[in-house]
Nucleic acid binder design. Structure first.
Length: 571
RNA sequence: AGCGGGGUAGAGCAGCCUGGAGUGCUCGUCGGGCCCAUAACCCGGAGGUCGUGUGGUUCAAAUCCCACCCCCGCUACCA
């Protein structure tokens, strides 16, 4: 008990999921690679009594959305509005519990970025420098290197990209390309020299290094990737772009430029916090607040080097306590690809009539925590039918059903002397498991924690098998009651432990158990230690899930492999 | 080519960081139990020289180090 109060007053948590670009509709890889793990951790944190905010939003600035809109021939604003809605709809469907899901196109964000910039500029961490950039007269805009191809100066290959020729593999500088052209329009490009602003990452390097090395929460991959950057030597990083769309740079000679999207996007975490609470500074600047970032592996350098560098330069914000870099999810041995129809595209999921919790259950088990993982339909079906239904849902049902039909829906608290060894052993197991699950959760080891919970559920099935209440009840109804009082206690614990992963299911179990409140409420974790009192009546049990049949899988596969064509969205 | 990940029972994985008898999970398979539960649940068996080196370190290696082989991903709008 003392432990709980301690953790309660200890900290508050600000949890973020990387802001998705909105140049496309998200697929399962996006869900499993940041939003879902962030959500589980956020839900857990709330349940443990931490004052928690889970923050997200769409990243709408930069060339990506500008070019996507250009290709569709719609105004950027219209494009962004539509895609924001598509994103939001999907995250809501998955029960992602964002406290705020904002947009970097909002004015509050633009203001926040400018303020942030002004502070680090005043502190001397910004410098000016000239840069050569491709300009496309056809599109009337400057183009990032990745939209540029040209003739390789070494082998003459006509479609060499700016950094490397894929034919002869020689490493190139974009300015070496002959006849550079735009990959969007095919139009010819010019090189123009313009002045840009740079963040002096080099001077921040010692502090970054110290922070990375001293952070004991980072997973090995995150640390080694970050240290790789440090060891290579950090260079000043350009933070401005010649684009129309984005946050305008608040300096006289730079009025026509915007901030590079990677400068403004992480500040989106701050502006999104600001948008929902006046007390936002408490979450960002108070030493009792912890920041956790969930993101895909491509984002690791930005969250371990670039953004922390900005934070150090600014001087007032907390550095992340943990940066949880997730690897990628593949699909049946292949890469997700919308154009090839390979993958599961989220906007189709509501059509399948499978609850979000079914997906959350499976996706949790394939969160790419340590290495790339695999979505397989057969695996999906198997994990749902055996773990979720055969193990957990079956335990729920056999307990509640027995109480409802054989004990008149009532359980009575056994006196301590009536507890047998087998009961005590189970109670002890619950206690132990809860502790080890807490430890894993604190380290954001979500997969491991989940399999511990499933194991505890399996213990429940074992307990019932071993104590044979269906026989016992004939001779000793009181003993049968005791068995089910204990089983129900486990059930209640399971509902709480599962709640961050399977929120709707836990609520259903809670209701069937006829308990007050919700296992998803802040602080719900503490309920786990309370029993049902002297006497308790449960509600009529109902089945939680239906097993997935082979032929359903075939159908689902077909439906979900069709991603939305952006052209159709704007017809 | 560079960078990253991986090679553990018929399949898919965990274990490796922090060395301690091949331990575990899901499925399949064989046998048994049970009949409260969604043909669910429980118990037991068979099945592995932990990619290769008759390499190194160690009392002890799946785990640490070295060399080699093989797979996959990224480097190209898409976490």
């Amino acid at each position: 008990m003392a432990k709980n109060t301690k953790s309660k007053q200890k900290n508050r948590r600000l949890i973020t999921a990387a802001l998705p670009y909105i140049n496309n509709v998200p697929h399962l890889g996006h869900i499993v690679g940041s939003h879902l793990p962030g959500d589980i951790f956020a839900r857990y944190s709330r349940a443990r009594g931490y004052e928690t905010l889970y923050i997200g939003g769409t990243d709408e600035n930069g060339s990506t959305s500008e070019i996507a809109a250009f290709k569709l021939n719609v105004p950027v604003e219209k494009f962004s509005d539509k895609l924001y809605k598509e994103h939001k709809k999907i995250y809501d469907w998955f029960e992602i519990s964002y406290d705020n899901f904002s947009r970097t196109s909002k004015s509050i964000h633009h203001e926040t970025v400018k303020e942030f910039f002004e502070v680090i500029n005043k502190k001397g961490f910004i410098e000016k420098n000239k840069m050569k950039v491709f300009y496309s007269p056809t599109e009337n805009m400057f183009l990032p290197d990745r939209y540029v191809v040209g003739e390789c100066p070494k082998c003459g290959y006509p479609d060499a990209s700016g950094d490397q020729c894929e034919k002869c593999t020689s490493v190139l500088d974009p300015s070496q390309l002959k006849n550079p052209k735009s990959t969007i329009s095919g139009g010819k490009l010019e090189i123009r020299e313009t002045e840009h602003l740079f963040l002096k990452l080099d001077s921040l390097s010692p502090k970054l290094k110290k922070w990375i090395q001293s952070n004991k929460y980072f997973r090995e991959q995150v640390r080694s990737l970050a240290m790789g950057w440090i060891n290579e030597g950090l260079k000043p990083r350009c933070i401005t772009r010649d684009l129309k769309h984005g946050v305008k740079v608040p300096l006289k000679e730079f009025e026509k430029k915007v901030f590079y999207v990677w400068f403004d996007a992480p500040i989106g975490y701050v502006s999104s916090t600001k948008e929902i609470t006046k007390e936002w500074e408490k979450f960002w600047k108070d030493e009792k607040s912890e920041v956790y970032n969930f993101l895909g592996k491509d984002n690791i350098p930005f969250h371990t080097i670039f953004w922390p560098g900005m934070v150090i330069a600014h001087g007032e914000f907390n550095l992340p306590k943990n940066v949880i870099g997730l690897q990628y999810l593949n699909y049946e041995g292949q890469k997700f690809s919308k154009s090839k129809g390979i993958g599961v595209f989220c906007e189709r999921l509501p059509e399948l009539k499978l609850e979000a919790d079914i997906w959350r259950h499976y996706l949790t088990q394939v969160i790419p925590e340590t290495s790339d993982s695999e979505f397989r339909w057969k695996d999906f079906q198997e994990r749902v039918n055996s773990d979720l239904i055969g193990n957990y849902a079956n335990f729920v049902n056999r307990v509640l059903n027995f109480i409802y039909t054989k004990l008149n829906g009532k359980i009575t608290k056994p006196s301590a002397k009536d507890l047998q060894d087998i009961d005590k052993k189970l109670l002890k197991k619950i206690e132990e498991k809860r502790k080890s699950i807490e430890d894993l959760m604190e380290k954001a080891e979500l997969r491991k924690a989940y399999s511990e919970i499933l194991e505890l559920s399996s213990e429940g099935n074992k307990y019932i098998n071993d104590s044979e209440p269906w026989n016992v009840i004939k001779e000793d109804p009181k003993r049968a009651n005791n068995i089910f009082y204990t089983s129900s206690f486990l059930l209640k614990n399971l509902a709480i432990l599962f709640a961050p992963y399977l929120p709707k299911t836990s609520e259903k179990v809670w209701k069937q158990l006829n308990l007050e409140g919700s296992p998803c409420n802040p602080g719900a974790w503490e309920e786990a230690e309370k029993d049902f009192g002297k006497e308790h009546t449960i509600n009529k049990p109902e089945l939680l899930f239906k097993k997935i049949e082979d032929k359903e899988i075939e159908e689902y596969k077909k439906i979900t492999s069709r991603g939305t064509d952006l052209n159709d969205l704007f017809k």
